[in-house]
Design a protein around this nucleic acid. Structure first.
Lengths: 140, 140
DNA sequence: TCGTTTGCTTGATTGAGTCAAGGATCATTG
DNA sequence: CAATGATCCTTGACTCAATCAAGCAAACGA
C-alpha cells in the first residue's frame, strides 16, 4: 500500500477532513484494483479505454512519460485485457483498445470502487450540491 | 508522476469534484516533495518524525511492511535527514529521529505544500465549517 | 532455562516512473 | 522527389516503492 500523502500537522478542521478524504479515497481505489488483481495504474489506464486511443494521447492525459504507458499497456496486453491495433492512417501509431475481457474487468472495477458513490450517497441531494460547490470554489 | 486514481465516468457533480480534488491534491503533494528532491514516501515519513519513533510504529501507522520503512529510512539517513538511534530500553529496537537538517527540510516541505491551505483559504470561515461537516458526514 | 514472540534487516522480486537513445514513419520543403 | 526534421513509439538502464520469505538478535514468559 502506498504511503499516504498526508502531513501530520493540520491547521484547520477543513484541512484535516481533506487529508482524511484523500487518504481513504486512495486506499479504496487501490483496494478495488487489488480485488481484480490490478495495480492502481493498470486500473486507471483500463478505465480510460472506453474508446480506443493512441499511446501518446494516454501519456499526455495521464501526465507521464510515453514509455511508462508502453510498459503498463504491455502488461495489460499480457493479461488479455487490451490489444494494440495498428493505426489505420498512421503506421507509427498504435491504438490501444479493450478486449471483451477488458470491458468486463473494467465494469467490475467500476462496481468495486464504491467509495465515491457511497460517500456522496451519505449526503442529501442539497448537501451534495453544497459539497460540489464548495469543492469547486476551493479548487479555484 | 503517479497515474491519477480517477475513473472516467462520474455519475454526479459531487463525485466529479471529489475526483478532481484527490487528483490535484496528490499531484501537489508530489510536486512539493520534488521541490526538495524528496519522493512522496520520503516526505510522508519525514513529516511524521516530529517526535522520534520506532520502525514498527511507523509501519503500523502508515499501513505497510516494516521492511519498506527500513528501506525508506535508510535513504533518508544517507541524505542526512534522519538518524537511527538505539532504543534505550530495548536493544532490538531503533528510534528514528530527524536531524537538524531533517527538521529544516521538513519545515520547508510543509511550506511548499500549500495546496490544502490555499484551497481552504478560498472559503469563508462559515464555508470552511460547512465543508468540514459535509466531508465528515460523507466519510461516514 | 527454553521456547516463543517481537523488532528489525536482508535478499529477491515486481511494478511504477523517468531519462536517453534509437527505429520507423510521416510531413515539409527545397 | 530527395533530404531534412518532427512525431510516435519502443528499448534499455536506472531509481524507488512495495511485498514476501527468511533470518538474527533481543526480550519475554512459562
Amino acid at each position: 500500500m502506498a504511503l499516504p500523502s498526508k502531513p501530520v500537522a493540520t491547521s484547520s478542521e477543513a484541512e484535516a477532513a481533506l487529508f482524511d478524504l484523500v487518504d481513504v479515497y486512495d486506499r479504496a481505489y487501490e483496494a478495488a484494483a487489488a480485488e481484480l488483481s490490478l495495480s492502481p495504474a493498470q486500473a486507471c489506464l483500463l478505465g480510460r479505454l472506453d474508446e480506443r486511443r493512441g499511446m501518446g494521447a494516454l501519456a499526455a492525459e495521464l501526465g507521464c512519460d510515453a514509455s511508462n504507458i508502453t510498459q503498463i499497456v504491455v502488461r495489460l496486453e499480457v493479461l488479455g485485457l487490451v490489444t494494440r491495433e495498428p493505426h489505420p492512417q498512421d503506421r507509427r501509431a498504435r491504438l490501444v483498445a479493450r478486449t471483451p475481457r477488458g470491458d468486463e474487468i473494467s465494469r467490475r472495477f467500476a462496481a468495486a470502487f464504491t467509495f465515491a458513490r457511497t460517500a456522496v450517497g451519505r449526503l442529501s441531494p442539497e448537501e451534495q450540491d453544497q459539497l460540489a460547490a464548495l469543492l469547486r470554489k476551493a479548487l479555484g
